[in-house]
Structures are given as C-alpha cells and as structure tokens.
Simulated scan of single mutants.
Amino acid sequence: MAARTGTEQIVPDRDAVSGRLTGSTPPPPGRANRTSLAGGGPRVGRPWTPYAFLLPAGALLAMFSVFPLVWALAISVQPRGAGKNGTITGFTLENFSSVLTDSRTLDSLRVTVAYALLTTFLCIAFSILTALAIKTVRRGAGVYQAALLIPLTVAPPVVVILWRALFNRNTGAVNGILTRLGIPEQGFYESTGQALYVLVAMAVWTNVGFWTLVYLASLNSVSTEIFEAAELDGCGPIRKFFYVIFPLLRRTTLLAGVVLMSAGLVVFVPAQLLTQGGPGGATNFLMYMASQEVLRYGHPGTANALVALLLLIIATTVALQFRLLRSKDA
C-alpha cells in the first residue's frame, strides 16, 4: 500500500490491487523463469526433454543405418582380402580403380539406370492417369480404390513366384493366351531382350496402386473451381493436363520420382529370385553384382566400392530431381 499524510487521498498500489482481484500470488524468485511464456504457451523447464525421447530412435538409426554405411565406406578403401575378419589394415583406392575399369560395371550401370528410369516414368504416368480416371467415377470409386491396394498386400517373393508362373515359357498362362491368338511363344524373363521389361512390368504392377491413391489424394485437395475456370477459358483436355493439373501435382511427382528412382537403383530381389542377373547379364543390376562379389568371389572391398558408387549416383539423381521439379513457392 502506498499512503500519503494530510488531505491527500490514500491510493492503493496498482500491482497489489490487481493481485488481490485475480487471486494470484507472485511467484517465488527461483521459479519465475520456469513459468515464463513463449509463443503463447508455457516454456518447457528442461530443454533436453525432447532429445531424450528421440534418443532411442536415433540410437537405432545409428546402429542399423549410419554405422553400416560408415563401415561399408571403410571396407571399400581397404586392400584386397582385408575387412573379412573385421580389421582395418590400410587405405587404398584399388577397389574403386578395379570397379571403374571393369566392363561389367558399365554394363550393370546401364541396365540399372534403364530399369530405374523406365520404372519411375511408367509408374508416375499410369498412376496419374488412373487417378484421373477414378476421380471421374461417380459410383463404385471405393471399390476401385480397394482393388488398387491388392498388390501392396503381396510380399515381394510371392510376387516373383506369381510372375514366374504367369510368364513361364512352357507352362505360363500368358504364353497360353498368345498361342491361342496365333502369336508365337515368347521367352519373357528367359529372353535377353525381354527379361528387363518383364521386371519393369512387375515393378509397375506392384507400385501403381499405392501411387495412384497418393495422386488421387492430391487431386481431391485441389479446389474444383480451378478446373472449372480452365474449362471456361477454353482449355482442352491436353492443355488442361499440362498447364493446370500437372503443375498442381508437381510436389507429389517430386516425391514419387525420388522414392521410385531410389528404389529402382537399388533393385535386388527380382534379379536374385527370378533371373539371377541373366540371361546374358540383361538384369545384372549393381546391387546384384555387389552381392555376387561378396558371396561368389569373396571380394568385400569391391562390393562396397560398388555400393559407394551407387550411393553417389542416388545422391546425384535426387539432387537433380529436386532441382528440376521443385515448386517456385517451395
């Protein structure tokens, strides 16, 4: 209370009155900083608490991702025969020189890049077209969307077994249909010129359903007024797609391109279970070649050099995709 003598009126202290009116008491000096506000909410008293929750996930990431990557890079610069018993003996670029001068590496790189490009382009194209078709469906759209999820429920080894049965040269159902139509039997995955395209078709069948749903969600998030305005301006279907629809799907296309391209460059399961890198090296992907360097020839340094080269290619490809497809407002 602040008081004055004489005829002056006694004026209560403003802070004391406000404290009594609100029923609050001033905080102790030691706890004043803990209850301070930041951005409209209470500030966390212990700033390390979020990092404590992230520590288990970070430890698992380091154990199963970061450490194997560092170890692979370390083995790639070891002399031939080193690294088998977990020892680091020196430093050399012999493995990289051997990989870069081997003609098999260039052939494997060509096959891997062709597979990744074809898979990425066809998956994105079919996914966009299928999403646009489902968006125009008035009834039964949910049934079509549920059917698209069927390939996602099948494990990759089961998919390989299914395609091996369908595209078998002698007993496959596809050749049976072709012979009924008067078309000669095809070699498919046993043919040097067709094996790669069979694996591409299998990858497209497996991934189109998921990415169709992703593109459909992106289309549903766009206001219909944009499409109506384009139609009023006289845009035909082709101009409407390239000048209105596709630019709106740029971010989704970037995501699909990065994921599909990265997965295509590290493809391994189809080559291992279906073609064993053949016939004639037609499906000898880089990851399959790296596995053979370890399992068949016992050269872990060469295999890890191939993996390091593949990682460099993936990083370059992803950076290029972000450069070409990123939005102006991103």
Rank of each mutant, 00 (worst) to 15 (best):
F91A: 13
G187V: 04
V158W: 09
A303L: 06
G19Q: 15
N33I: 11
P79Q: 04
L295V: 11
I128K: 03
I124S: 00
V44F: 05
A57D: 00
G298D: 06
G90P: 05
A125M: 12
W205N: 00
A74M: 10
L166R: 02
F227R: 08
L21H: 13
G40V: 13
G187E: 02
K84G: 03
I238Y: 07
F242Q: 01
T171V: 12
T22L: 12
T7N: 08
Y215I: 04
D107T: 12
S221H: 07
G234W: 10
L274R: 02
G277H: 04
L286N: 00
K328M: 12
G142A: 06
V66L: 15
R296I: 13
T25K: 13
G182W: 05
R239L: 10
P156K: 07
V258E: 00
G257H: 03
M63K: 14
A282C: 06
T275S: 05
N284M: 14
V11D: 09
F126P: 01
V99F: 10
S262C: 06
A155D: 03
G298T: 07
V143Q: 08
N95I: 13
P184T: 08
R180S: 14
L295A: 15
F210Y: 15
V267M: 08
V198S: 02
Q321C: 05
G6W: 09
V11E: 10
P47M: 04
T87I: 10
V159Q: 11
T119R: 10
V222Q: 08
N85I: 12
F91W: 11
S191L: 05
A155R: 09
L118C: 14
T105E: 02
L73I: 12
L306M: 15
A305H: 07
M202V: 13
I124M: 12
F126W: 11
F285Y: 13
G39W: 12
Y297Q: 13
F242D: 01
R250I: 01
A62Q: 08
E231W: 06
F96I: 13
I75T: 07
L286Q: 00
E8G: 07
T153K: 02
A16V: 09
G45A: 15
R326A: 09
A217S: 11
T206N: 11
G182N: 06
G298V: 07
K240E: 08
L216F: 05
T101V: 05
W205M: 02
L37Q: 07
L249D: 00
G209R: 03
A319N: 09
R138H: 13
T49S: 11
L21K: 13
A38T: 10
G140Y: 07
L310V: 04
V198D: 00
L274M: 15
V174A: 10
V259K: 00
Q321Y: 08
A263G: 14
A330M: 05
G281P: 05
F126Y: 11
I75W: 03
P26C: 02
G277V: 06
L249N: 01
V77P: 01
F96D: 02
R139I: 14
L196I: 09
T224R: 11
T171Y: 11
L162E: 00
P50H: 07
A57I: 12
V160W: 03
